[in-house]
């Protein structure tokens, strides 16, 4: 292998419900839908395996309910996975399964190793404190204590995401959706994470704002060398951003490949439907 992955996910599973005699006896492939018709247990993520490499953008597409966001929630410890492992090369030399770390260590990983941008900025930002304050909060949790460097870093990041200087002291609740997303991205980048998780970050934004956010993500990839997982149900977004793409359906990865290959020569029936809908 000529390069090592920055992030590696192995056998990630997340189910809601305990399962029953019927669904527990089925293999991943045998369970056609992502729920059990007998007991109602939902199998949101089923045996997900993938890797992300330095500086690449990995796209994740699939319809609503396919398990994309659940996967991201598990990776950011917002939800506890049922089983599986995730490794990041910059944490304990890539030997520790992050899911098995203590709560304190998971907090450290969130502060120092990962950044996440949510579809709804309300989950990623504190709406009542200033944009600068939001960044400062993240910097404090990552160990920065001196005020002046903190302010300078916050200003630098907010400038990088095109927040005008005169608005940096304002609370994000006064910002437009696009501005809130940009502040969220700045906040997620503040601790220089090697891996950034972007969950439907352009959904609900109008086209021109969406375009600005996409430009920003590309700039971040180029300027910071961050590895990014972008979840979107919009193939247009994935086409613009992703080097490689995985396609999810009913909690499973049904296809993966180079993004242009997924779009021009999709193999799975569902991916063909998805691409036909786009074109």
């Amino acid at each position: 292998m000529f390069e090592q992955p920055v992030l590696k996910v192995e056998g990630l599973r997340k189910q809601f419900g305990d399962g029953c005699g019927h669904c527990n006896s089925l293999s991943v492939d045998a369970l056609e839908k992502n729920y059990c018709t007998t007991c109602g247990t939902v199998y949101a993520c089923q045996d997900l395996n993938f890797e992300v490499y330095k500086g690449e953008i990995l796209g994740v597409v699939g319809e609503s309910g396919s398990g994309k966001s659940t996967m991201m929630q598990c990776l950011y410890f917002d939800k506890e996975p049922t089983s599986g492992a995730v490794y990041i090369d910059s944490y304990k030399e890539g030997r520790a399964n992050l899911f098995e770390e203590s709560s304190q260590q998971k907090r450290y990983i969130k502060d120092m190793v990962l950044g996440k941008v949510y579809q709804n900025p309300i989950y990623g930002l504190r709406m009542n404190i200033s944009a600068v304050g939001n960044i400062a909060e993240k910097l404090i949790s990552s160990g920065v204590r001196e005020v002046e460097p903190m302010k300078a870093r916050a200003k630098e990041l907010l400038e990088a995401v095109n927040i005008p200087t005169f608005r940096m002291g304002e609370a994000p609740k006064n910002f437009s959706g696009g501005m809130q997303q940009r502040v969220q991205i700045a906040k997620a980048l503040s601790n220089n994470p090697p891996v950034l998780l972007l969950d439907e970050v352009t959904t609900g934004l109008d086209l021109s704002v969406q375009a600005n956010v996409l430009d920003l993500i590309k700039e971040i990839q180029r300027d910071f060398g961050v590895s990014i997982i972008v979840v979107s149900h919009d193939l247009g977004v994935i086409r613009m951003l992703a080097d490689r793409t995985i396609v999810m359906l009913n909690g499973k990865i049904i296809e993966s490949g180079l993004t242009d290959q997924i779009l021009e020569d999709p193999q799975h029936e569902y991916t063909q439907q998805l691409v036909n809908a786009l074109l």
Binding site: D260, Q261, E264, D265, Q267
Partner: peptide, 9 residues
């Protein structure tokens, strides 16, 4: 060409 460039499998 697309097979060489792997746009097609």
């Amino acid at each position: 060409l697309k097979c060489i460039y792997r746009t097609y499998l």
